[in-house]
Simulated assay, not measured.
Amino acid sequence: MRFNRMLLSATLVVVALVIQVSVLARLHLPGAVPDLVLLTVLGLALVYGHVGGALVGFAAGLLADLAPPADHAAGRYALVLCVIGYLAGLFKPDNGRLRSATGPMAVVAVAAIGSTLLYAGVGALVGDTAARHVGLGGLLLTATVYDLLLAPFVVPGIMALARRADNDPLADTTSATKAADVASGWLSSGTGLRIGGQRNGLRARAAKARVARAGRIKGVKRL
C-alpha cells in the first residue's frame, strides 16, 4: 500500500475505534453496539479493493482486539475484519465512485450479519459461548439496523477521503511534464523538417537561378 493510504487508513481506524469505545459503547443500546470500525473498513475496502481491504481489516481488527476493555482472545476480530474487508473489496465500484446507494448499503447489511456470525463462530471454536446467552438473533438484528442507520453518515465520507488521498499531484505534474515534452518533441521535429525543407528549396532555387544566368550569359556571348 502507498504511504498516503496507510497514513489515512491508520488515522481513520484509530479515530473510529476511539469513538466506538468511548462513545458508542457507553450508549447502552439494546443488543449489539454500532460498529464504526467495521464501517470504516468497508468504506476503505470499496476504494482500495480486496487486497487493501484485507490489510486494513486485519490491522483494524487487531487494534480492536488490543483496545480496552477487550474481553476476548487477540486476533479474533482481526480475522473477522480481514475476511470482511477482503470480500467487501471485491465489490469495489469503477474508479471508486458510487453510482447508487443500493450496492453499498447491501454490502453493509451483509457485512454486519457476516461479521456477527463469523465472530460468534470463531468464539465457539475457542470455547466462548457468550453469543448464545445474549441471543444471536437479537445481535444480528440490532447490529444490522445500527450499521445501516450509521452507514450513510460514515461510508460516503470515508470513500471521498480515500479517493482524494489517492490523487497524487506529483504524479499528475510528472505526467503533464512528460506530455509537454512529447508535444514539444513533435513540434521541434516538425519544425526541423519544415526548416530543412525550406533550406533545400532555397538551395534548389538558387541553383536554378545560377544555371539560368549562365545560359543567358552564354547566349549573349554567342550573339
Rank of each mutant, 00 (worst) to 15 (best):
L7T: 14
S115D: 01
R210V: 02
G114Y: 00
G215L: 14
G96M: 00
C82L: 15
R222P: 01
G61H: 11
A151Q: 13
Y48F: 12
R199E: 10
A183L: 15
L29M: 07
P69M: 07
L117V: 10
F3M: 11
G57D: 12
V13I: 15
A106W: 09
G96W: 04
A131N: 05
A67M: 14
T174A: 10
A143T: 13
S22F: 07
G185F: 13
A124R: 15
A124S: 14
P156I: 11
L223W: 05
D94Q: 09
L44Y: 08
I113E: 01
D181A: 13
L187A: 14
A180G: 00
G114E: 00
M1E: 02
K178L: 11
N167P: 00
N200Y: 05
P34R: 10
K92C: 11
V220M: 01
A162G: 07
S100K: 01
A151R: 13
P104L: 10
P156A: 07
A70Q: 08
W186L: 14
S100H: 08
P104R: 13
V145G: 02
R205D: 08
L55W: 12
L39K: 05
L63W: 11
N167K: 07
A73L: 15
V56L: 04
G89M: 05
K208A: 15
G135R: 03
Y86E: 01
T174K: 04
A88W: 02
A209C: 02
G89H: 08
